[in-house]
Amino acid sequence: MRAGFRRYSAYRQAALAGVITNSVFGLIRAATLATLFTGATRSSEYTPQQMSTYVWLGQGLLSVVLLWGGWDFAERIRTGHVAVDLYRPWDLQAALLAEEIGRAGYALALRFLPPMIIGLALSEMYLPRDPLIWLLFLISALLSVVISFSLRFMINLAAFWLLDIRGPASMYALVSNLLTGLVLPIWMFPGWAQTAIWATPFPYLLQAPIDVFVEHGSPWRLLGAQLLVTAIVLGAGRLMLRRAEHRLVVQGG
């Protein structure tokens, strides 16, 4: 964890650039949704305050949960550097997860707070009054980080078979943009699609922690579902790692 935090804090300028792009993108989305709102005739499930929170929380969580990127491990497999990871007396999945949580902790301080502050300054946001909700949100966000890690871990591991994972990785980016609730809240999709989307792991990356925070639906049910998804994807990743180790072909001299 410490390594994860320190590794990513080594690049301050990159962080600043990231914050700026992220915030600009947030403003654009907020404006788009506002027009959508005033023009919409259907009854909305979010109040305008909730919608504003949805946008800014999504912007902030984006780099904490890491929807884009995070393919370093596949590169280590491709180049054979994974050999170094494999002869260490550690649980590789746990070690990478620990580094990921460290990275997320860093992102929380530097990539999450700035968009939230900007959001608070520029719009009226929904903030839960019950401190318990804040705590549940933090737990939910942590589970999102673990789920996001686990999904990417499996795609990274695919490099043992495919060597090049650019295909699955860009597919993942495409799908996750839509199905995590980043572009549009999941409840804006037609009913049948909502059921289908909630049956995938994607909404648990972003929509779930946001809904916990804005108190849209039961937070306990959301957290319960997230826990279940976490267990499944972590377990699947573990199985896949075992298979990978067994058929191992470490690349290069």
Binding site: R7, A10, G80, H81, V84, L86, Y87, P89, W90
Partner: peptide, 23 residues
């Protein structure tokens, strides 16, 4: 027994690194 062995074994790869690049 790879993990157990790793505690008794030191490995140096001339063309790889086991150090953290940015730290």
């Amino acid at each position: 027994q790879r993990k157990k062995l790793a505690r008794r074994l030191g490995v140096v790869f001339g063309q790889r690194t086991q150090l953290w690049w940015d730290l």
